[in-house]
Each structure stands twice: as C-alpha cells, then as structure tokens.
Amino acid sequence: MNSQRSAWTFVAPALFVLGVFLVLPVCAALLLSLTDFDLYALANLDNMRFVGFGNYLDIFNTPLFWKALGNTVWFVVLSLPLSLAASLGAALLLNSPLARFKGFHRTALFAPVVTTVVAVAVIWRYLFHTRYGLINYGLSFLGIGPIDWLGDPHWAMPALALFAVWKNFGYNMIILLAGLQAIPQDLYEAACIDGASRRRQFWHITLPGLRPVLLLVAIITMAGYFQLFAEPYVMTRGDPLQSTVSVLYLMYEEGFKWWNLGRASAIAFILFALIFAITRLLLRLARARGETA
C-alpha cells in the first residue's frame, strides 16, 4: 500500500498538468463550440447561450471558411509531395556509400528544422521580394521574369509552400534515413548477384522496405501542414485577396481578434475532424494495398 502511494507521488504532478491544461480544455472546447460565447460573455457569463450546432451551420454558410479550407488544402497538396520527394531524395543521397562529408551534409540539410519559424519566415519574405529578392534574381538568369510572389494571389500560396518545404523536409529526411539503414543489406547483395539494376533494386527493395516509414512520415507531415499559421501571419497576413488565409489563421482571427470564442472552437474542431479523417483514410488505403501486395 505504501509503495502504491509513493508511486502516485511520481505520476501525480505530470498527470495534473496534462489533465488541467490539456484534457480539460479539449472537453471544454467541445462544449464551447456549442455556445455563442463572445466578447459579452467574456465580460459576463450570463450573456452566453447554448446554440447547439448553430456555430457549425454558420461556419458552413460562411464563404471565407470555404476559401480558407480551399487555401489550406491547396497548400497541403502543393507542399506535401514536394516535401516527401525532397526528404526521400536527400535521405537516399546521404545513405549512398559514395557520399562524402555525410555529417556536414546532414547537419546542413537539417538546420532549417530547428530554426524559429517566425525568424526564417521574415528572411523568406525578403527573399521573395519582387524587385530586390534573391529568388527573382536567381530566376532572372533562367530568363524567368520577375514574379510578384507574395503580392499575386496565384503565387502567394506556392511561395509559402516552397518556404514550408525548405523549413521541414530535413525532419523527414532523418526518419527516412533511419528507415533506409534498417533495410537488411543482404537483400541488396542478393539482388546484385541476381544482376538486378540499381533502378530495379530501388523499386523492389528500397521502396517496399520504406513503406511503413513513408506512411508515418506522410501522416505526420500532412497533419503538420494542415496547421498552417505562422507563415501567413508573418509573411502575408492572409493577403493578397485572402489567398493565404488558412483555417487556423481564420480561427485565430475569429477567436482573438473578434473574440467569437464559440465559433473559433467550432473551426478548430472542424479542422481536426478533417485531419483525423484523412489520417484514417491513409491508414486504410495503406492496409488495403498491403493486403493485395
């Protein structure tokens, strides 16, 4: 009995923190999303009313919500494949027996991951500058005319996607590199003896061996990209023409600019229901393919 009590003194502080500052707020968020909690309720709780699914219906009838959702999905569609390709390419290069100075290259390619997103977003805002930015300067050598990256509604989201890929691909590179190193070397040796080409080895040994890791990395990255916020906050403030308003940016404005905390909670829940659903879908697709393969 005594040892039970002392065991509890080990876990109680951490469980208290998680309970009070994570579990309780998540439950409260669900309730809050069913109320019209706003600036008046903030002053006096008597001004709060239960509105059922009113917030959700309201949001689904708001054009800006659909615009933000479309923007966010577009951002994910642009950056996710690019990011995965960059991470896989970098991991394959680092894993190659021909590569020199691996430690240096790994550190250099990973460095953006540990940087502060606000600080590097500020850098990229200037790199994307139409007249004085390094990116347009570099493109001018390829004969590509100046692009108004952050001022043109068609280019703003691709610009943020490029930045996000630069910032994040190193994370997946490290995980994929570990995945590559876990593939048994004798599989490659056997393939060599059988005379399989490099390309066939990649398609028949490397990719199947990496599949579980690739799936994991795709899900983590997808969920992270759906939570786009700091980039538009610092680089574009949602402009031009609201083309970079993300769902989380909308939630932030709704909640902490207009103080519609009930509506903002509902937006948060919709976003995470979406992420959850896509995760389930990816897992199911992977399992179905795993069974047929």
């Binding site: 009070v20 309780l24 939570q227 989380l248 909670s265």
Partner: peptide, 12 residues
C-alpha cells in the same frame, strides 16, 4: 492537437 485546447485554455 494543441490548437483545439487553446481557446478554453485562454479562458482558464
């Protein structure tokens, strides 16, 4: 996801 908790956390 932490963002779900942020609004009630602010009230807390």
């Amino acid at each position: 996801p932490l963002q779900i908790a942020m609004i009630p956390l602010f009230l807390l």
